[in-house]
């Protein structure tokens, strides 16, 4: 059972995440897709660390820190989304254009 199989899982997850990011119009749903993408990257770090460089722990800790940062990022993003929703009564990403014009 090689490295490749793990990478296949993460690739599927990544592609699903990208597809969702491009297809969804709802900001929350886009955020969910972003979580998928990040998760795929985390798996890759862990896998590379485990199988290719077993004597060091860089990938492991990178994943650890990434999880922490993702949590923070999600919290901030949701705060912003809720705030925007309060102002424009919509989560539609195309309607959030008040600061564009």
């Amino acid at each position: 059972m090689g490295v490749e199989l793990y990478l296949v899982i993460s690739t599927i997850m990544l592609c699903a995440g990208i597809y969702g990011f491009l297809m969804r119009k709802n900001t929350l749903a886009m955020l969910i897709s972003v979580e998928l993408i990040l998760n795929a990257a985390d798996i890759n770090f862990a896998v590379f660390n485990k199988f290719l460089f077993p004597n060091q722990l860089e990938g492991h800790f990178f994943t650890l820190f990434a999880i922490g940062i993702v949590a923070a990022e999600t919290a901030i993003a949701i705060a912003i989304i809720i705030n925007v929703y309060r102002n424009v009564q919509s989560l539609d990403v195309d309607k959030i254009d008040k600061m564009k014009h």
Partner: peptide, 12 residues
């Protein structure tokens, strides 16, 4: 256009 998803698509 100012559309995030269009930018992301072009980026991809």
């Amino acid at each position: 256009s100012g559309r995030v998803q269009q930018y992301a698509y072009v980026f991809l």
